[in-house]
């Protein structure tokens, strides 16, 4: 325990917090999506940091060496790959929805869109 090791994980946590703050504080939907992407990146950083082992190389077999002591953990790499693909898909979907909302309401401000929707409902 102590705040002076695990710098990579700490950085990931702070990045996650910044992304979450962006999500809460901005009214512009594009900026909300940017905050969301920052949270995604923080997760990748965290996973990659968890898989790293001091002084070992990437898990690609070189010269037939196949001992556990030569390579880092390959599993987080696979997880990050999955995460990147899913986040690309989710970002594209969110942006498409934003484009549709903009075409209809001509604003990106989420409060204004809500107000206009309420007015339409009445």
């Amino acid at each position: 325990m102590g705040f002076f090791h695990n710098y990579e994980e700490m950085a990931a946590m702070i990045l996650f917090g910044i992304g979450f703050t962006t999500l809460l504080l901005h009214k512009n939907m594009i900026k909300k999506i940017i905050g969301f992407s920052m949270m995604d990146s923080a997760i990748y950083l965290f996973l990659a940091a968890k898989g790293y082992i001091e002084g070992r190389t990437a898990p690609i077999v070189v010269d037939g060496v196949q001992s556990m002591e030569a390579y880092i953990n390959p599993i987080p790499a696979g997880l990050v790959l999955t995460g990147i693909v899913v986040s690309v898909s989710v970002t594209a979907l969110m942006l498409a929805l934003t484009v549709r909302l903009y075409r209809r309401y001509h604003t990106l401000d989420i409060d204004e869109i809500t107000a206009q929707v309420r007015k339409e409902e009445q």
Partner: peptide, 20 residues
């Protein structure tokens, strides 16, 4: 809270971490 959690995680780059 997240920083507190990260502080309790096993050390970075250690080969004996439970993930390995």
């Amino acid at each position: 809270m997240l920083l507190q959690t990260a502080a309790y995680l096993p050390p970075f780059g250690n080969p004996d971490n439970p993930a390995n």
